[in-house]
Design a protein around this nucleic acid. Structure first.
Lengths: 199, 199
DNA sequence: CGTCTATTTGAATGTACTCAAAAGCGGTGG
DNA sequence: CCACCGCTTTTGAGTACATTCAAATAGACG
């Protein structure tokens, strides 16, 4: 069970079993049902979450109330509004559950305590932020250089689990297109003998 | 001259004159001509730069060698590949000069020394990163929710100085459209009696 | 089974794109 | 000072693609 999160952290920093146990005492496990919110815009992100099972997504709402999906986090990923979490400023993001989800969460206060007591933890914090930044920068580059079908194929190749587990409504928003268009793109790709490369 | 950078830092953290003078000893001033490169992909970003005058832009190159503008930094802005700068990993970005530019630059080593010797500097580092992250996240949200004309108008309102000082080629790429399309968008907006709001 | 939501499909529209060419602008050298 | 060159911006015509509106189908859940 907790092996998952231990392995995940080990990929980023060196952490002894003892240190990990120490870290765990600062965490809580919560289960959220479909459509429940992990974070609401206007609030401060007090927690960061590791997804043990299930999935969530973060989004903004535009003036017309339309959702705009920014991030999708399934099993083995971390999610929060890292900006709000670290700065403790008000968040502009919402984070909502896709399917019944088990999370390991840690509060800002406890996270800080981990940084104070576990030598490598500062590095962990930095890496979380850096990864988030790099991924976002990558998305900007792809959003304004690649076509919608290409962005979809990239997603299929990099994160097939997202295609399988997430409603197309959300995937479409994540890709910056309408659900109808995604449906047509999928159809067109299928007729091409599932040649999952560039046209 | 150095007032500019002092004021800029003061907006983020409290810094005494003495501390600022101390910081300055770690910096260098360089002047780069049009088309010179401040950073090349494949290298590590050893410096972060404050733009005293002139301007630069960062971009990635796609498979076909097409530029993809990510960030534009004119007077009073900081620029670097913050990811590469802080992680000291290889950068995937290029940073090039738009017009003859005067920069105040500081190396990673010296930046670290500032963090060690100036109490508030750690915070400055975090804020730089946080701002970059938030701006990038914002761009993702806008790129896949707003129309090209709307994105252009937003830029006009938020950063008119960019419209005035940067070639349309680069602005188009920054907005994720072709130069021809930007030209047509500008034309259409002008005919609307320069009503710089939503259609 | 019925309701609600997600996905698919159709037809018409709109927007950005490509290819191509012309016009504008800045700088260099004769 | 003018002619020329290279680069940016504009304009035109035709095309490709995503969008809208609308409706039908399919799935999920109580």
């Amino acid at each position: 069970m907790n092996q998952k999160i231990y392995q995940n952290i080990l990929k980023k920093i060196a952490l002894t079993k003892t240190e990990f146990e120490h870290f765990l005492t600062f965490t809580k496990t919560v289960v959220l049902d479909k459509n429940e919110h992990f974070l609401n815009e206007g609030k401060v992100a007090n927690y960061i979450a590791f997804v043990v099972s299930g999935g969530l997504y973060s989004y903004t709402l535009d003036e017309k109330g339309k959702k705009n999906v920014l991030q999708i986090a399934l099993e083995n990923y971390w999610i929060s509004d890292l900006y709000s979490f670290f700065s403790q400023e008000i968040s502009k993001l919402n984070i909502e559950v896709i399917t019944k989800t088990e999370l390991i969460i840690i509060s800002k206060d406890n996270f800080d305590k981990c940084c104070d007591t576990i030598p490598a933890f500062d590095r962990f914090q930095r890496l979380l932020f850096q990864n988030a930044y790099v991924n976002t920068l990558q998305r900007v580059a792809e959003l304004n250089s690649k076509s919608a079908p290409q962005r979809y194929l990239d997603l299929v190749n990099k994160h097939p689990e997202i295609i399988q587990q997430v409603p197309q409504l959300l995937i479409a928003s994540y890709l910056g297109i309408k659900p109808q268009s995604l449906s047509r793109i999928r159809k067109k790709i299928c007729t091409k003998n599932s040649k999952a490369t560039i046209n």
